[in-house]
Amino acid sequence: MKLKSRHLLGLEGISKEEIGLILDTAETFKEVLERPIKKVPTLRGVTVVNLFYEASTRTRISFELAEKRLSAELVNFSASTSSVKKGETLKDTVKNIEAMKIDMVVIRHQSSGTPYFLTQCLSSSIINAGDGAHEHPTQGLLDLFTLREKYKKIEGLRVVIVGDIKHSRVARSNIWGLKTMGASVAVCGPTTLMPYEIDKMGVEVYSNLGEALQGADVVNVLRIQLERQKGGLLPSLREYANEFGINSDRLKRLNPNFTIMHPGPINRGVEITPEVADGPYSVILDQVTNGVAIRMAVLYLLSGGEGKVE
């Protein structure tokens, strides 16, 4: 089996079978990561450009490691060191880079839809590493992978995403992926951070954390940003922590064998207390480990690979 598209722009519209294929492929690669020599020749001769127009630590290193472990050639580019500041348009920049003969582009950009825009200007495969508040598909996939690893199947799980849903691409990719895989999804956060008609995405909407957590298997805690307070969306981070912060006390409402997730970076003591972030039910570091395997799988499959890997 192969993926239908040459690009990975989002999890909206990606079928259950395709997600299954990516997760299965990632499982194989995860095994590679356990070996003493964590490298395979799969993408030898393939050139990948990592275009990061927005700061990123985790995602960027994760993609770089994934590319290296697949033996791809890679080039890094970040907005601060580019000609963006000279007033060159994004289209000109990427056309110039492509003229140097590349195969794949991994892009992180603050504007929603930019990866889609690149598919219109370039002939390379495009991987979305996060665009505005739109999607972050590899994060969604690594979250699915982490849950499948623990529970064996995603179907039937009750997942609550807590925090700034409005500005979160992680929330959107998670909602699409989880719904496709048969989980039930609830979102919970202050009403000012809840996007318009989010319920139409097929999720339950809560502004009371206690109610939202009742009977949940998984809590995915989103990062809350200080700018939201300045923008008038929140009175204070202190109040946010009191009303929506995940602490040990609140975990009592969850089902046994529950899981705590966080896409990082964590604001300890704001959206999550340290003891919860570091607790035995936390899979936060597993998510990071799995991120490399997922990105290896995505790079491999988009470069034309089929399900089985040696």
Partner: peptide, 15 residues
């Protein structure tokens, strides 16, 4: 426009 479509696309809405 701020509406369901802007929610899905993650583009900033004008209500």
């Amino acid at each position: 426009n701020e509406g369901f479509v802007s929610t899905v696309l993650g583009l900033k809405g004008i209500p």
